[in-house]
Write a protein that binds this DNA or RNA. Structure first.
Length: 722
DNA sequence: AGCACGCCGACT
DNA sequence: GTCGGCGTGCTC
């Protein structure tokens, strides 16, 4: 018996599998998805590997074959379906199989912890007895022909198992206090016509057992959640499970509450602040099928849901679904792969769908349902203020006259205000007026942001230094802070409205574990009149008395050097605007220097279609997605010269491809932010005509790039090219 | 990642 | 002559 093993998931610079011989005493233990210990390389290091195939024969010469030393897991920690998913990810994102598996294998799996928990789950023996039995079975037999090595390996493995034995006692104590669960209450909700249609489409697609993207296009407050819940109930009633993806768990407490209350099965919530034992419990509940619903952000798409029947991606346009760390996967794309593997529907919900997805929907590639009505109230009234004109009229304030007067009215009425600015800190640039020196991060090519606590901070690497008002370059004392962040908005708004109670929500005020919930509940219970915040406040929040939203500067995203900047602007304005007047009539004031830009005009008219029409024309003439497929090849090194050499290697490889397929190469050039955390970055952007060509060439470059002095990052379908 | 193999410069 | 530099390639 032979097993095909993927060695050391994460970093080993090998992207192939290896065959190992299974000794007789391990034959009944090996299974696809279990981990094994094997000898690897000339020095026979003991390494961990994952079995991805069990077979009778191999092409490898017998004398090369080594034996499996031990089987680590009692049950597979990765299912067949998840292994298929790993291969899809490897192929599409041009990663190594190990990297793809690394996303799927739960991070808490270390040594034999899973073995221990699983033993606890399945055995009739006491835990300790079973562990001892396993220990004896695996270790008290010859593991390899070479007896010297065998002894060393035994010692190594024995020590791993002993560590496990110590842990198991703690686990035993913990498992005695099992959590209890609220029983769901079975209320009937009446659906609107549109909701009914959407639900029917989802359930009938599910019944057919086919892979299909269903775009659920509905404005904020049109009742998407109700469609999700009823669809989930249907799928669960047929014995299947559901993954519900949300962009950020701490901002969707209402939805989670709703789902928990209305779903028959146990609901597991994944979030980044869970500790290792909470994660283990969640993982096991899904794996065993005890829980049929998992809700969570990006990582939830890798959850071990058993017999998956439906995937729902809420706010599918959110960029947080894309990982910024290598491998740069997009959880929405991964969700599509997983839906395809399982032949199930995937629901993409949004009020502002991505241009690509909407394009596929109207082209007939995806199904689409539109929820037109806003269930409670009319949409808010939107005013666009031209800030050029404000300046011409002598208004030097950050706030337009209209915004100030609207805030005033709101405060008088006892209603609440939300002020949105996409930038934290006090001011983003500190500059010497004598010599022009801009305070820069010493690790990144980024200007430092002045914070109110007297420190200058880099928002890329968190480097901080004390602020001195004397220029470090020329010694002048004419140093000035330019621009505004949320801290400054908070300060200045207090000078205009001295009695107003102001709260601020951004990365700086929410580092503590429950900080987000605390700020939101304070605002909800009307302990504050004005909430100032970044991106965080734009999403999903619902406050009955919030009737005015101010967008301080709509241009921050618009001016980014990215072909999606208009789309992002439209989405963000629409989203923040959606926070106003969810029950009473709301108003929105948008401050901008580009009042005529179509993304801003369309957002102010709540008109997705006309935004889309303008945007798709530009995408077509410029050859951007969905009319092309983009890959960003980035080469990174601490040494500038190495990075440059690396990107030149990539360029040479790409040039050869121009003879075979039609592609457009932009670069090589320095990345827009050249240095990040002391790493120099060069990149080449490549546009392909066909997805298949993109995949082939990205994989070819990955295979052939062998310059070890600089790391190559392949970003397929990049969201952020900075 | 490790480790060996291999092909060039400055040394006992 | 040979010790060691690290480029290249392999690991079942």
């Amino acid at each position: 018996m032979i097993v095909e093993v993927c060695i050391n998931y994460q970093d080993a610079n090998v992207d192939r599998t290896f065959d190992y011989l299974v000794p007789g005493h391990l034959e009944e233990l090996v299974e696809v998805g279990k981990r094994v210990y094997v000898n690897f390389g000339v020095s026979n290091r003991v390494v961990e590997g994952l079995i991805i195939n069990v077979k009778e024969d191999t092409n490898v010469e017998r004398e090369k074959l080594k034996c499996v030393l031990a089987v680590i897991d009692k049950i597979p920690i990765v299912s067949d379906e998840q292994i298929k998913l790993a291969f899809s990810i490897k192929n599409y994102y041009a990663t190594k199989l190990g990297q793809a598996l690394g996303l799927i294998i739960p991070p808490f799996v270390s040594n034999n912890e899973i073995y221990i928990i699983c033993a606890q789950q399945t055995s009739d023996l006491t835990l300790e007895d079973e562990l001892k039995e396993i220990y004896n079975r695996i270790l008290k037999r010859p593991v390899s022909a070479n007896s010297k090595l065998a002894k060393e390996n035994e010692d190594k493995i024995a020590s791993l198992f002993l560590r496990g034995l110590l842990r198991f006692e703690l686990k035993l104590l913990k498992s005695l206090n099992e959590e209890k669960r609220e029983t769901p209450t079975e209320p009937q909700y009446k659906l609107t016509k549109d909701q009914k249609k959407a639900l029917e489409l989802i359930t009938s697609t599910f019944d057919k057992g086919i892979y299909k993207n269903i775009l659920l296009f509905g404005v904020t407050g049109s009742g998407k959640t109700e469609v999700y819940i009823q669809a989930m109930r249907y799928v669960i009633s047929k014995g299947k499970s559901v993954i519900l993806m949300v962009p950020e768990i701490s901002l969707t407490p209402q939805m989670i509450q709703n789902v928990k209350r209305r779903i028959e099965s146990e609901v597991v919530v994944y979030h980044s602040k869970m500790n290792s034992s909470q994660r283990q419990r969640a993982w096991l509940k899904l794996k065993s099928g005890e829980a049929k619903v998992v809700i969570g952000p990006r990582s939830a798409i890798f959850a071990p849901a058993k017999e998956l029947g439906l995937i729902i991606v809420d706010e599918e346009h959110e960029t947080s679904y894309k990982s910024e760390k290598s491998p740069r996967v997009n959880a929405v794309e991964v969700a599509q792969m997983r839906a395809k593997i399982n032949s199930i529907p995937i629901v993409l919900g949004s009020a502002t769908p991505t241009v690509e997805h909407y394009y596929y929907a109207i082209a007939g590639k995806y199904a689409i349902c539109t929820l037109r009505e806003r269930i409670n109230k009319a949409l808010p009234e939107v005013f666009v203020v031209d800030m050029k004109k404000e300046i011409l009229d002598g208004n030097k304030s950050i706030f337009s006259r209209l915004l100030l007067s609207e805030i005033e009215k709101n405060l008088q009425r006892g209603e609440q205000v939300l002020l949105f600015l996409n930038r934290r800190g006090y001011s983003p640039i500190v500059i010497c007026r004598e010599c022009g020196y801009v305070y820069m991060c010493k690790n990144c090519s980024i200007s430092l942001t002045y914070h109110k606590d007297g420190y200058l901070r880099c928002h890329y690497c968190n480097y901080k230094q004390e602020y001195t008002s004397i220029c470090p370059k020329c010694g002048s004392k004419y140093v000035r802070q330019y621009g505004s962040g949320t801290q400054r908005i908070e300060d200045e708004i207090k000078t205009y409205f001295k009695d107003a109670r102001v709260l601020r929500m951004d990365k700086d005020t929410t580092t503590r574990k429950d900080a987000v919930e605390e700020i939101l509940s304070k605002f909800k219970s009307k302990e504050a009149d004005i909430l100032v915040g970044t991106q965080m406040v734009a999403k999903g929040l619902h406050f009955p008395d919030l009737t005015l939203v101010g967008v301080i500067n709509a241009d921050t995203i618009l001016n980014m050097p990215d072909f999606r900047s208009k789309e992002r602007t439209f989405q963000l304005i629409t989203q923040v605007a959606g926070r106003a007047g969810r029950e009473k009539q709301g108003r929105v004031v948008i401050q901008t220097f580009n009042p005529d830009d179509y993304s801003i005009v369309a957002a102010s008219n709540h008109d997705y279609e006309s935004f889309f029409e303008e945007e798709i024309k530009i995408r077509k003439t410029m050859g951007y997605p969905p009319y092309s497929y983009i890959v960003n090849f980035i080469v990174v090194s601490q040494n500038e010269g190495f990075a440059k050499k690396g990107i030149e290697n990539v360029y040479r490889l790409l040039e050869k491809c121009t003879k075979i397929v039609n592609l457009k190469i932009y670069g090589p050039s320095e990345s827009p932010i050249f240095k990040v955390e002391n790493q120099y970055r060069y990149h080449i952007l490549v546009k392909f005509e066909k997805a298949s060509q993109m995949i082939d060439i990205a994989n070819m470059i990955k295979e052939r790039y062998n310059y070890n002095n600089a790391e190559l990052i392949i970003d397929v379908n990049p969201i952020n090219t900075l």
